[in-house]
Amino acid sequence: MAETPILEVEDLARYFDVSRPWLQRVLAGEGKRILRAVDGISFAIPRGTTLSLVGESGCGKSTVARLVVGLYPPSRGHVRFEGMELERARAIAEQRRRMQMIFQDPYASLNPRWRVKDIVAEPIRAFGMTPSAAAQQAKVAELLTQVGLSPLDGEKFPHEFSGGQRQRISIARALSSNPDFLVCDEPTSALDVSVQAQILNLMKDLQARLGLTYLFISHNLAVVRQVSDRIGVMYLGRLVELAPAETLFTTPRHPYTRALMEAIPDLEMTGRQRIPVGGEVPSPISPPSGCPFHPRCPLANDRCKAERPGLIPARATEQSLTACHAVEEGRDGGLPAAQRIGTTATAL
């Protein structure tokens, strides 16, 4: 690929010090406690496409979202925005306005004391994008129309809107600085299913119309399938599988990816007995040695306990990158039979 991807992440890591205060620590005679929220992940997002990160709570997906827009500095590794180190890009207002974020909770992310028109206009003002008040007003009206609200809604306050409408306001605000790259952290998780469909459709329309690039964070695999070009599955701060969306769903390779898909309740009621994956996600403060999934993995052996697998192309499907010794060695029983067809998932 000749074109520079809009975002490139290389060996990115972020650790948090969650030790107790110094005195208590010394009295109890314990060491520092470091939480490895993100522990060495790499990916790139080509312009105009959507990469989704999925995983369960605590896997580090939201931390990645915050790292790539510069809300946290990385502990290790690089984030490059169009080939430029993020730190440098963030220092330039013109580059900064090109990346925006949409948050999960539309109730907490809008200032309740501001009118909607002021909320939407804030990035325009902050980046000094329009000289006159009239031009600004026209831009706000255009943005509100674009996300399916009325220009008259600008006079109202956030509390006068439902959750779905508030998320539309968040999107209008994010779009107001004409960004190229949007980080969406669980944008529909707080919404009801019929409203979720509205927002997902809106986001897809906007991407087609404005050529936006998305980093989409979600725990819902069915939602992710609808919006993504490529999908990364995260477990305990690491990417365990990175594959084109369709490939991931038709031929999931990593045992964790397969377990995740297996765990989703079946709406088709085939009477299939699901075998839930046993155990729970271990603490990221003391992750298991070797492959972080090995205590729950049906394919784990001694190598998995000792050696951390790298993210490498999986056998027979070069488009899938998998971090799994079993897949590498062919202990996974080859390509899984076409995943259960006719399953629909569900969270309303």
């Binding site: 959750g163 459709n201 819902n220 069915a222 259960r340």
Partner: peptide, 19 residues
Amino acid sequence: SIPPLDRKVEHLAQIDGAM
């Protein structure tokens, strides 16, 4: 409006408006 897991649809069915 429940997004399907087994296929990608171009446009999800949606119920306009809110409760």
